[in-house]
């Protein structure tokens, strides 16, 4: 079936590229490891954590931020993929992809899915490091977290795709990312629980609560203990669908947002 052949090829290409860029795996691991080994070590004394689901006892700060760091891998990877989409579009390989005789939505979402699969591999590798470091997760946490990572990866990948359809030049991309990655990460429950944020600023806590990244983090947090957080799953799913529709709309040639250079 042509669609499946194309999807498999896009996946295969993404993994070949990933495999060819060993530095990408290393940098994907180093960033969250710095947070886990350095930031968390310095911060654990400053932040008292109460017992909240899915945790059934007092936990270390390292345990608390693990889901946020797994989601951070998906976040950086999603944005890096969208950066490569902008680059690909300027260099032409995105144009090549778009000439395939398949529905454009399938091509675009396959690309997002391929990027997500790479994110999941990186996140699982980091999870392995964290477990070796002594952080406890459920015995099957490494399995049950996979669907949550896939959904979070798809949501963030679709967001990246949407941004790539809106950003016309590579030079503008880095600046835009600063306005996406950092607010998304810091205005979430990745580093501090929302109740803690609410003590300082109820307004910021409400913003954190509606941030789709928070929902992704919470979904991963529960999934690590083989539990399902229904509202977080639904919210992340909704955000994925909305970002995907808008991204495909952004690449619709009739809308011409895809912004190929004229000549």
């Amino acid at each position: 079936m042509p669609v499946l052949i194309a999807i498999r090829a896009i996946l295969h290409r993404e993994f070949l590229r990933f495999w060819g860029q060993k530095g990408r795996l290393v940098s994907a691991l180093v960033r969250p490891m710095v947070w886990l080994f350095v930031f968390a070590a310095g911060f654990r004394a400053a932040l008292g954590l109460s017992i909240t689901p899915p945790y059934q006892t007092y936990i270390t700060y390292e345990t608390y931020i693990l889901p946020g760091l797994l989601a951070m891998i998906c976040l950086f990877n999603g944005m890096q993929s969208s950066l490569s989409l902008v680059y690909d579009r300027e260099m032409g390989s995105m144009r090549l992809l778009m000439t395939a005789p398949l529905p454009r939505s399938v091509l675009l979402l396959s690309k997002v899915f391929a990027g997500t699969c790479v994110s999941v591999v990186q996140a699982l590798a980091f999870l392995g490091v964290a477990v070796l470091w002594g952080i406890d997760v459920a015995p099957l946490g490494g399995m049950s977290v996979i669907p949550a990572l896939v959904l979070t990866g798809m949501m963030l990948g679709a967001l990246g795709l949407l941004l790539s359809s809106l950003i016309r030049q590579l030079e503008n991309f880095a600046g835009t990312m600063n306005f996406v990655i950092f607010p998304m990460f810091f205005l979430s429950s990745a580093l501090y629980p929302l109740w803690k944020m609410a003590e300082s600023s109820p307004v910021l806590a409400r913003i954190c609560a509606v941030n789709p990244f928070t929902q992704g983090v919470e979904m991963i947090r529960f999934a690590l203990y083989a539990q399902w957080n229904g509202p977080a799953i639904l919210w992340t799913l909704l955000a994925t669908v909305v970002f995907s529709i808008l991204a495909v709309w952004g690449y619709d040639p009739a809308r011409a947002l895809a912004g190929a250079k004229r000549g």
């Binding site: 052949i5 194309a6 090829a9 896009i10 295969h12 060819g20």
Partner: peptide, 28 residues
């Protein structure tokens, strides 16, 4: 289509580039 800019994946082999595009066309 042959585009003005290169659309090749520089890190893949000649054959892999061709197979990738063939797959996009539904040929495997």
């Amino acid at each position: 289509v042959v585009f003005q800019q290169s659309t090749l994946d520089l890190d893949l082999t000649v054959r892999r580039n061709l197979l990738y595009f063939a797959a996009l066309q539904g040929i495997a």
